[in-house]
Each structure stands twice: as structure tokens, then as C-alpha cells.
């Protein structure tokens, strides 16, 4: 019997090792969201990012860094105000001002530099040099002066990983600023697309797309991009709308993390409502 196993091992050891490794990989694949894995991930990328940040700094021109940061902060704040003003204009047109909607006044911005990028075609992630110590939390939006870049996915003490909009695992609820119609935006590997858009929606090329208030992760309108093309017009009951993002993910080096996460209170109310149904 032992001789048999030894013979099998001798003849097929490469394949046996391969199969064992693949089985272990598949087991780990199913454990992605477990607490243990998240903790190991947090320590690993935190340690690596601290080395990467030193390396990245070499490429930065240090004497212009502070000045640039201040200008970028002003730009980002102005973008947020502009976005907010556009919202107000549209709301006024619809006489929503009469409802005396509450105004959320300030938007805390946490400055961060991208210390490394993993920009594969489908799994875009960026590592930022701001983490738990800077009050960064999972779910916070990452922005530039042009618009939204992505969402914080994992945090360590001084670093965090964000999924960019060019990550197939990130789906965001967006709306057309002109028509107020909502849809889900995702990355299909090639384009940002608004999926399952009913044909009755009055979207046009060039329409400005922003994040929607009904989003479970970004409860605030942030610029996303412009409608580039409306597909599937002739067949099916839905359109697929291609969106040209405002942000160039390849060239972005410095970002801000918007220090807001959706209210837990709202989440709890919605969760209880769903439970009652």
C-alpha cells in the first residue's frame, strides 16, 4: 500500500502539489470577508505602504508640496460647493425649497497622497497615506477637485486602500443632474456604464452624472462624469449608458477623503423597515 502511494507521489508529485495549492487558494477565495483575513490584510498593506510612501516621496517636488496641497484643498472645496449650488438651483426650480430641507454645512476633507496603484483593467485599487489615525473609515468617498475617485475599502493605522470607480466590485448609485433619474453605475472592464436604464429615461449625450442621495455609500451628490453614449437602444427594454469619468485615474496622485459615512441612524431605520416587510 505504502509502495503504491510512494509510486503515485513519484509519478505525479507536480500535479498533486498543484492540486493542493489550488484547493487552498479556492478555500481562501471563499474567506475574503472574514475578520481574520481583513486583519492580516490591514497589517500587510499598512507595513508595505509605509515603505512605498518613502519611495513615492522621492518623485515628488517637496518645496511645492504644501502650496499644491493648499490649492488642491481649495479646488476640492470649491468643487463641493459648486456641486452643492447646482443641486440648490435644481431644487429651487422644483420648488423643493418650500420643504425647508436641512442643510449639512461643512464637509471635512482629509488630505492624502496615493502611495501605490494597482490599476489592472478590472480591479483598480489605490493605497493612500491616510488611515485610522487620520480618522479615515471604511466607506468614505475619495475625491479630487474633478470628482469622485472611489471608496475606502480597508484601513490600517496610517494607510488605507480605496477601490476606484474602475473596479468591477464597486457599484454606485448615480443620477442625471438634469433629469434627476437614478441608475446603478459600474465598471465593465472597459467603460463606466449605467446599467438597466429604462428606455423611458430622457438621458442625452453630455448630461452630467453625479452620485445619488439614495446611494447606500455616498449620501451626497459628487460629480462622476458625462454621458458619452447610450447603448442597446434598439433591442431589449433597458439602455446601457456609457459615462466618461471626470477623473483620470491613471494620472491622479493626490486626493482628498471626504470625512463622511452614511448615518448609522438612517441605515438602522431602513434596515428595520425592510425587516418589517
Amino acid at each position: 500500500m505504502i509502495r503504491f502511494f510512494v509510486s503515485v507521489w513519484e509519478n505525479f508529485k507536480e500535479y498533486i502539489v498543484l492540486v493542493i495549492l489550488l484547493i487552498v487558494s479556492l478555500i481562501l477565495l471563499s474567506q475574503n470577508s472574514s475578520q481574520g483575513i481583513q486583519k492580516v490584510r490591514s497589517i500587510a498593506f499598512g507595513t508595505f505602504a509605509s515603505v512605498t510612501s518613502v519611495f513615492t516621496d522621492v518623485f515628488n517636488i517637496s518645496n511645492l508640496k504644501n502650496e499644491n496641497e493648499n490649492l488642491r484643498r481649495t479646488n476640492a472645496e470649491m468643487m463641493l460647493h459648486l456641486s452643492r449650488l447646482r443641486e440648490y438651483a435644481i431644487v429651487n426650480e422644483d420648488l423643493k425649497g418650500l420643504l425647508a430641507l436641512k442643510d449639512s454645512s461643512t464637509f471635512p476633507l482629509i488630505s492624502a497622497t496615493i502611495v501605490s496603484k494597482s490599476l489592472t483593467k478590472s480591479q483598480g485599487t489605490i493605497t493612500l497615506n491616510a488611515g485610522n489615525n487620520q480618522s479615515v473609515k471604511v466607506g468614505m468617498p475619495v475625491i479630487t477637485d474633478k470628482g469622485i475617485v472611489g471608496i475606502i475599502y480597508s484601513t490600517a493605522d496610517n494607510y488605507s486602500i480605496a477601490r476606484t470607480l474602475t473596479n468591477v466590485d464597486l457599484k454606485v448609485t448615480v443620477k442625471s443632474e438634469r433629469t434627476r433619474e437614478n441608475a446603478v453605475l459600474k465598471w465593465n472592464g472597459e467603460w463606466l456604464v449605467m446599467i438597466n436604464v429604462p428606455k423611458t429615461f430622457d438621458l442625452k449625450k453630455g448630461d452630467r452624472i453625479v452620485t445619488s442621495e439614495i446611494s447606500s455609500i455616498i449620501p451626497f451628490p459628487l460629480p462622476v462624469g458625462l454621458v458619452y453614449e447610450i447603448g442597446n437602444v434598439e433591442k431589449g427594454i433597458f439602455n446601457e449608458v456609457k459615462v466618461q469619468p471626470f477623473v483620470d485615474f491613471q494620472k491622479t496622485e493626490n486626493v482628498f477623503i471626504l470625512g463622511i459615512v452614511k448615518s448609522k441612524e438612517i441605515d438602522d431605520i431602513e434596515f428595520n423597515l425592510l425587516n418589517r416587510q
Binding site: 495549492l21 487552498v24 487558494s25 479556492l26 481562501l28 477565495l29 471563499s30 474567506q31 475574503n32 483575513i37 492580516v40 490584510r41 500587510a44 498593506f45 508595505f48 501605490s116 494597482s118 489592472t120 480591479q123 485599487t125 493605497t127 475599502y153 480597508s154 486602500i161 477601490r163 466590485d169
Partner: peptide, 11 residues
């Protein structure tokens, strides 16, 4: 684990 990709895919 370092880049935040889906654990197991690159493995």
C-alpha cells in the same frame, strides 16, 4: 494581501 485584490485570485 498587499494590494487589496480579491484574495485567492492572483494565488
Amino acid at each position: 494581501i498587499i494590494t487589496g485584490s480579491l484574495l485567492g485570485s492572483a494565488m
